[in-house]
Computed example of a mutant assay.
Amino acid sequence: MRLYYKYLLILFKSQMQYRISFWLLTIGQFFIPLTIFAGLYLLFERFGQIKGWGFFEVALCFAVIHMAFSLSECFARGFDVFSSLIIKGEFDRLLVRPRSTFIQVLGSKFEFTRFGRLLQSVIVLIWALSNLPIEWTVIKAITLALMITSGVFIFTGIYMLAATMCFWTVQSLEVANIFTDGGREMAQYPLNIYQKWVTRFFTYVIPFGTVNYLPLKYILGKVTGNDLTHMLTPVLGSLFILPCFLVWQIGVRHYRSTGS
């Protein structure tokens, strides 16, 4: 982790060499999800609710998934642009270094401008929480934090799977965007508004349901039962990154260099 923090500091200093560009990009990232949220607001202005979910309840769902997505885009960007390392043959250089390829790829790229997107999501989160009659407990507060953390792990895991495919395809596959950008768009609404097979797929295969839908019902008081069970739901979703890491390790072992 000491090496990871060094990567973090070096790349932050390099991006701050062009401060005006950095701040303009950050402001742009702030407004990108704002247009999506405006569409969400107008939707509820027209229909009032969606399958029993009110505007501020969905706004909380929106804020959680976008916070997770912006954090993963910032800190796991190295896997998202991994194909460039394969194409240029730079991954060979990482292999001869006496450190984990996972840490080196993770620390190869950071997008600090994504904090603009994160700030917008934080504002929506505060607005939604201030307008919801939630009876807060320590467990509910921990569950909310775990929801965001679980989302970061799931998005990072998807980036890792997409990066692993580059060992065989060289170029990254656009189909991965179905589960990153598409997953973000889908998970910004409670999953029970979709057909059952969609809900099951995004709960048991790509576990976005453990980020917002299942624990969100608990926070909003829509379910009864063991508090500890609901708090652990996001933790189970976070385990998604373990098979993704295993697949990454398999890909590294089967890498045969660029041949150049």
Rank of each mutant, 00 (worst) to 15 (best):
I154G: 04
I142D: 07
K196R: 14
Q195R: 08
M67W: 00
A145N: 02
Y218P: 00
T233A: 13
A63K: 01
R200P: 00
V58W: 04
F102R: 10
G39W: 00
I87L: 07
R200D: 12
S100N: 12
A76I: 06
Y4M: 08
G151A: 05
I10R: 10
S257I: 06
T35N: 05
V152M: 03
L85E: 13
F179C: 09
L95T: 00
G183A: 12
R184P: 11
I123P: 08
F12N: 01
A38V: 09
T210E: 02
Q249A: 12
G89K: 06
F245M: 15
E174V: 14
S121I: 09
A176V: 15
I32D: 01
L43R: 11
D227E: 13
L242A: 10
H66S: 02
L106H: 14
A38S: 05
F110N: 10
W168E: 13
T143C: 12
Y7M: 10
I65R: 05
K217S: 13
Y194A: 08
W168I: 06
G78E: 04
G259R: 12
M160Q: 08
Q195A: 15
V198F: 11
W136F: 11
V205M: 01
T199K: 07
W53I: 07
S84W: 13
L161K: 07
R256E: 13
K140V: 09
E135Y: 11
V152C: 03
E185V: 10
L60A: 02
L125F: 15
F102Y: 15
G48K: 10
R114K: 13
Q249P: 06
E57G: 10
Q195T: 13
L24I: 12
M186H: 03
F91S: 00
A187E: 04
S84F: 08
I219T: 03
T156K: 09
T203M: 14
G221H: 06
R117L: 09
Q29T: 05
I103N: 09
I193K: 02
R97D: 03
F69T: 03
G237K: 04
M147G: 04
S72A: 13
R77G: 02
V124G: 01
I20S: 03
A176Y: 14
F208Q: 01
F102P: 12
L246E: 12
L11G: 07
G183I: 12
A68L: 01
I87T: 01
T224L: 03
A176F: 15
P243V: 06
E45N: 06
F153N: 01
L106V: 09
R117W: 11
W168M: 08
F69V: 04
V96W: 04
G237I: 02
N192G: 10
R77P: 00
L106R: 12
F79Q: 04
Y4H: 07
I36W: 03
F22H: 05
I134N: 04
R253F: 14
G251W: 08
F44I: 02
I126M: 14
